[in-house]
Write a protein that binds this DNA or RNA. Structure first.
Lengths: 153, 153
DNA sequence: CTTGACTCTATAGTGACTATAGATGCTAGG
DNA sequence: CCTAGCATCTATAGTCACTATAGAGTCAAG
């Protein structure tokens, strides 16, 4: 018995809307339909969607996954570029890690600007803006206080 | 003499369109205009845009920067939430680094699937799709070859 | 028979830009 | 003065990978 879109969603831990989106994007085939127009899927679709989700977890773009699926479907071509793809991703991920570590150290510098000795006032704004020292706080209430007047995203 | 938008762009290493975008988003004030309608900026705007770009480099969203600018402009409020913001960012960045390191180890496993001993064929597709072994390559041409038939993004 | 969960299509919104088209202005060389 | 080639203007649409919303139809349990 075929699966409905909700079943496929559960089986692959994917949202229903995302499945329809992948179909629109040509990653999933147009499925059979029931008399009432419901999409009907098979185990093959479960596999294919699992494949897609695994690739997404590896940070691949939908375009790359499309190409990988095409390769999987017609395996006559060389697989050299798969290796290239993986190498490229490793390099990108290393790059990202490096720049995040730099960012983290910047942020920690920022945090230190306001911590410890409060004699010279909160330096975070000053750090971000070399001309204006933080005019509030005056070394009195410059303390980590989670949940206090955080701006809404 | 006031700066034109291109001068401001050069001074802050920002694209012209991005400056107009920030204006539309309320991060930069509506600037004076020349007789012919050109935007005219001052050193204050250079500072402000530098501030914005520095915050962006710290991974802050435009919404957060808007709030930081409001704080900077009217320093009557408590600066507790700036500390909270920085703490939150550090935690987020740590989280990102962690998950990227996991991803990297996954990718390296993938790479190993096709490297070294080729006796058992390219395993990358097989790794991504536990049922289908990679039917091409047959352990013959499964080798890193950058620039070969890479799919276009 | 009703309720509530599920499904359908179509459209718009997200964030932080980027790209394009078509019009106008400014400046330097001839 | 004329022209070529920039810079600037506005307005709109596109990017990526979804996510959200509206309004309608379907299905199974109680």
């Amino acid at each position: 018995m075929p699966l409905k879109i909700g079943d496929l969603a559960k089986a692959t831990d994917t949202q229903v809307v995302t499945i329809r989106y992948y179909e629109k994007e040509g990653l999933l085939r147009q499925p059979e339909r029931s008399d009432s127009g419901y999409r009907l899927y098979s185990e093959t679709d479960v596999e294919r969607l699992h494949f897609i989700r695994r690739c997404r977890q590896h940070g691949m773009s939908l375009g790359e996954i499309r190409a990988l699926l095409a390769f999987r479907d017609s395996p006559t071509s060389s697989c050299d570029w798969i290796n290239f793809l993986v190498e490229k991703h490793i390099a990108e991920v290393e790059q990202q890690i490096e720049s995040l570590q730099l960012l983290k150290s910047h942020l920690e510098t920022l945090r230190r600007s306001c911590g410890g000795d409060h004699a010279h006032g909160c330096g975070i704004i000053a750090q971000l803006d070399r001309d204006t020292p933080c005019p509030s706080c005056n070394g009195l209430h410059c303390r980590l206080a989670p949940g206090s007047s955080v701006p809404s995203r």
